[in-house]
Design a protein around this nucleic acid. Structure first.
Length: 419
RNA sequence: GUGGGUGUAGCUCAGUGGUAGAGCACUGGAUUGUGGCUCCGGGUGUCGCGGGUUCAAUUCCCGUCACUCACCCCA
């Protein structure tokens, strides 16, 4: 066929959707237990929002955004992530004036025009949280602990939690100088990308996967040694709290995020199980204390993370699929199809999930259908049943059948289902 | 953007220089109104597309497109 879903964008069919629901419900339940409330943002935002927040020289902004001009007027972009919109909405609605601390969560599609691979799509789903107004470090630890607990609750056990601090602006400036001082003699040995990174954003050289670059990066001075006293105290506070909580973590001084807005705390959860492929970053986040102010909001510290739902889904163990139908109605003759349809409505009004094959067909084929879709109960209605005001109630699992008055059918079905 | 792999039935895949198969799925029957198991029967394909070689190409060659995996980067 010639018309297909756009490259890197997938349909999620009903057979897969229950796993998505399981994941999304687990996330909602988890974060709501910590006081987070849901927000929904537009999928389209002004392009400048992402350029300013994510950073002009990041890969996302340089080459991965879906950007177009709206009818020759404004440049719009399909959101590549959720934090920028969160900050925009927080500032736009002066949320700081209503409450000292704001805890939001979101779930939705994001768009990045990357080459698709296992666990990486051009439309992908993220769930994330943001906390505005709490400078930490206790909230940092609580957020990390929350996400670790969440991932465990999905049955994903084989993960590693990495934390780092890149300090505030002051730390970053002094570290940048030190790092450049270290890297400059190696400049010619670095890959072309890293040579460019040295000018644009030297911290990213630490994250390079080219063997020679990572060798050089391994010898680089640690940013942790350049933290100001305040930044150091914050990072120590985070680690102490994680220890009290018993949250497993590992400090990784080379952890650098690909978005420019972070400060101080950074963290990432790596999945280590089979089946994830090379895209093993399940979740990433950190603190972005300067961002609200940079969007003309009040000076407001903030921390958040986002996780990739497709990747979580790949790491989640399979669960038994549950039936989506309680009762399947079988019309024994074409003449009672109208009555069968009415019975369906009666049962649904009583709160049951009811299916039937309104096309008719043989009794055998209708029962086969009931079995196929895993209905627990079949209710058979024929001419004699209609005449007597009864239905044949067949328990497909226990292979028993009884005749019950039609008025009792719903109640009897419910009691069977609750066993 | 760079490299590798794969394109055959709705799905998973086998196969052949003489235009094609299995399992699953779907469907009818064995049981005039009773499912799952078993048995018997049924339908379905531009063999991704274009070109070349050949008497003949789904098969060999070239190109192209799609999908996929890895690199890069990220969730």
């Amino acid at each position: 066929m010639s018309l297909r879903a756009v490259k890197g964008m997938k349909d999620i069919l009903p057979d897969e959707i229950s796993k998505w629901h399981r994941l999304e419900n687990a996330f909602r339940t988890r974060v709501e237990g910590y006081g987070f409330r849901e927000v929904r943002f537009p999928i389209l935002e002004p392009t400048a929002l992402f350029v300013r927040s994510i950073g002009e020289t990041t890969d996302i902004v340089e080459k991965e955004m879906y950007t177009f001009t709206d009818r020759g007027e404004k440049s719009l972009t399909l959101r590549p992530e959720g934090t920028a919109s969160s900050v925009r909405a927080y500032v736009q609605h002066s949320v700081q004036a209503r409450e000292p601390v704001t805890k939001w969560y979101y779930i939705g599609p994001m768009y990045r025009r990357e080459r698709p691979a296992k666990g990486r799509f051009r439309q992908f789903y993220q769930a994330g949280i943001e906390v505005f107004g709490d400078p930490g470090p206790y909230v940092d630890a609580e957020v990390i602990d929350m996400v670790v607990g969440f991932i465990a609750s999905l049955g994903i056990s084989d993960v590693e939690v990495l934390v780092n601090s890149i300090g505030g602006p002051e730390t970053r400036e002094s570290y940048r100088d030190a790092l450049l001082g270290y890297l400059t003699p190696y400049r010619a040995e670095l890959c072309p990308d890293c040579q460019r990174r040295m000018d644009a954003n030297p911290l990213r050289v630490l994250d390079c996967k080219v063997p020679r670059c990572s060798e050089i990066a391994a010898g680089a001075p640690s940013i942790l040694k350049h933290l100001t006293d305040e930044d150091r105290a914050h990072f120590d506070g985070l680690q102490e709290t994680l220890t009290i909580l018993g949250t497993p973590y590992r400090v990784d001084g080379s952890l650098v995020r690909g978005l420019d807005y972070y400060s101080r705390t950074l963290f990432e959860v790596l999945g280590k199980g089979e089946g994830l492929g090379a895209q093993n970053a399940l979740l990433g986040g950190g603190r972005y204390d300067q961002m609200v102010r940079s969007f003309d909001g009040p000076d407001t510290p903030a921390i958040g993370f986002a996780m990739g739902l497709e990747r979580l889904l790949m790491a989640m163990p399979e669960a038994d699929t549950e039936s989506h139908v309680d009762v399947f109605i079988v019309a024994a003759q074409a003449s009672v199809r109208g009555q069968a349809t009415l019975l369906g409505r009666e049962l649904r009004d009583a709160g049951l999930r009811v299916e039937s094959d309104l096309r008719g067909g043989s009794l055998k084929s209708q029962l086969r259908r009931a079995d196929k879709i895993d209905a627990r109960i079949a209710m058979i209605l024929g001419e004699s049943e209609v005449e007597e005001g009864v239905v044949q109630l067949k328990d497909l699992k226990n292979k028993t059948q009884e005749q019950v008055p039609r008025t009792d059918a719903a109640a009897r079905a419910k009691s069977l289902l609750s066993d």
